[in-house]
Every structure is written in C-alpha cells, then in structure tokens.
Design a protein around this nucleic acid. Sequence first.
DNA 1: GTCTATAGCGGGATAGAC
DNA 2: GTCTATCCCGCTATAGAC
Lengths: 195, 195
Amino acid sequence: MARKQGSHSDITGPRIEEAAAQLIARHGYAAVSMRQIATEVGVQVGALYNYTPDKQSLLFDMMHNHMDTLLSALKAENINGDALTRLEAFTRFHIRFHLPRPDQVFIAYMELRNLDPANFAKIGVMRRSYEDALADILQQGETEGAFAVSDTRVAARALIAMLTGLSHWYREEGQLEIARIETIYWDLVRKAVSI
Amino acid sequence: MARKQGSHSDITGPRIEEAAAQLIARHGYAAVSMRQIATEVGVQVGALYNYTPDKQSLLFDMMHNHMDTLLSALKAENINGDALTRLEAFTRFHIRFHLPRPDQVFIAYMELRNLDPANFAKIGVMRRSYEDALADILQQGETEGAFAVSDTRVAARALIAMLTGLSHWYREEGQLEIARIETIYWDLVRKAVSI
DNA sequence: GTCTATAGCGGGATAGAC
DNA sequence: GTCTATCCCGCTATAGAC
C-alpha cells in the first residue's frame, strides 16, 4: 500500500474517492481527517490537494456523483406501462441500484448536514427529483384506480424510507439472497398501496 | 442568555442536555464542539465538565436515555389483543412517541457510528429489543393467519424504517395534521402486512 | 459551581523543493 | 504529481483561583 516518493500514478484520483467514501461511511465526514484519507490511499496529505480544492468538495462531489448516477440509471430504465408494472420496476430498480453501494447510500443520507448551504440545495433538488419519480407512479395508480394512497407525496417518502432502510442493515450474504429480499420488499410495497 | 460569573444554577445539567441535543442533531456529534455547547448554555467550557466526564459520555447518555424512555413507554402501553389490534397500537405509539422528539430520533439513528464500541453494543441491544417487539406482533399475526409476511424480522425492520423516516421530514404544521399522518401511515402498515 | 488560562494535540490548507 | 515542512487555528480536557 505504501508508495515511494516520486512514484506517479494517474489512478490516485479514483483511489481518493474510494478511500474517502469508505472512511466517511464508517466514521462520518467530520470525524475523518484528510491525513487519514491520504494514509489510506498511500500518499501524503499535500498530494490530495491536486485532486480536490478542499475537503468539502470531496464530500459534495461524492454525493453529487451518486445522485447523478442514480437519476441517470433511473432514466435509462425507461419505466413504462400501467402503474403496477411501473411500481414493481421502480422498486426492483431501487433495490438493485442501492444494495451494491452501501457506502454511497449511507453518505447520501447521513452527511446532508455537513454540506455547505449551496451544496445542500443542489443535492436537495436531485433528491426531490427522485422522490417525484415515485410520486408520479403512485399518482398514476390513483388515477387508474389501481392504488389507494391518500397522499402520494407522503406515501412516496414512506416507501423510499422503507426501501432505503434495507441498505442500512443488508450485507452480502450470498447473491442468491438478493432475489429473496427483492421479493419480500416488493410484496410489502405492492400491498401497502393496494386498494 | 449570558450568565454572570459566579451565578449558580442547578438547572445547568438539563440545559446542557437540551443544548447538546439541538446542536448535535443539527450539525452532527463530531462537528459540534464543547465550546459551542457551553456558549449555547451560557457558561464557559470548563463548567460542562462538572456534569459530564467527557464528550463521549454526553452522547451516550443522550442516546441511552432516549432508548430507555422509548422501551419504558412501550412497555407502559401494555399492548394486548389480536395481532391487528396490537399492530395498530404499536404503529400509533411509534409515531406519537417519535414525532415530538425529532432531535433525539435523529441522533439515535445518525450517531451510532460515533459511539465507543462498548457503548455501541449497549445501544444495539436496546434497539434490537424494540425491533423484537414489532417482530413478535408480526409473528403472532402469521400464526393467527391475519398477516402474510414471508420474513417477520425483515418486515419489522422495513416497517420501522418507514415509520422512523417520518421523523426525518415531518415538522409541526399544526397539531391537527398529526392525526392525518397517523392514519396515512397506519393504512400503509396495515395493508403492507395484510394477506 | 463557575471562571480564566493553558497544556497538548490534531485539524485543514499552503509553499516550495524535487 | 508528490514530498516535506510548516502556519495557524480550534479542539478536548485539566488546573487552580474565586
């Protein structure tokens, strides 16, 4: 892990992101020092500042990348059809996207407080956009008479909290289990909004 | 708010807990300094150490008190009857207990990482105990044939995550609304576990 | 019980050599 | 691009006067 003086590498950037994500997810942004991150990467502190202007940008970029990837992936799913079909697609997409990224999910939900006001606002918009995608599906279900939720925005938040909670305790216990987890959660979601 | 030198007060203890809870909920344990807490209370830093041996104890005591109050209150509810009745009682209890304590809820779920290993273990036991209370109800429902959840432990976690997520965004917009929120969430829970 | 003062440490960030 | 060295600041916790 230790690097020699003068050893150059153009993969230091990605390694910083990885190390920072791991450490921040485990200990929290405020509790992790730039020195710790540098040690984990195998460079000296000064080297980090070739890749990020400051610690805050490190956090924001991680969260922004995460939300950006999430929204792009959701869009790419191109979820169409009747409300029930779309809800199932959304639910399974959410689980499949979030489960392999426990660190990013943790950070995205725990470190909002540590964002500068301007950065907080930007992430807030992205989060609301994701929430809206689910709320839209629920609204369609109401219109079609397929769902019964008295408040689509509240229900959307409730369901996302339920689904995301999964990422807070689930740790890979074999790939086979994921399918089962998906089914359990889809059952809960499907019935929760049913007539 | 500012206190004069030599002014004594036996209510400083409680005020420290309040101030610490507010600040930590808003900014995070690691980001809040003892100086900030002292300023908020209106004393100098040294005075805090008449009430707590160190910063870590401040955090642990807050979380321990919260969990202790939660478990006592749950026990006092004495939830009996058939599974559906008990589930409704649990759901409404959870919401009524958590909504007035947004700071403590936030801390209890966000600051686990900042507990010493020994303290972490103690809080973990208490959290699991609360989870078990709900899992028991779900198990009873399975036995009675009133509920259909394929995994009671997973379902318990999912439902608690959903219910607790409420505390993360709900802010008092008039007491009247609480009844409505309770109904919306009870509808979701009831249907989620239904046959 | 609270104050002032300070010890001792570790933090973020920068400068300049290589 | 990385290193070493360092500035300056704020942190937790303690000591001793009042």
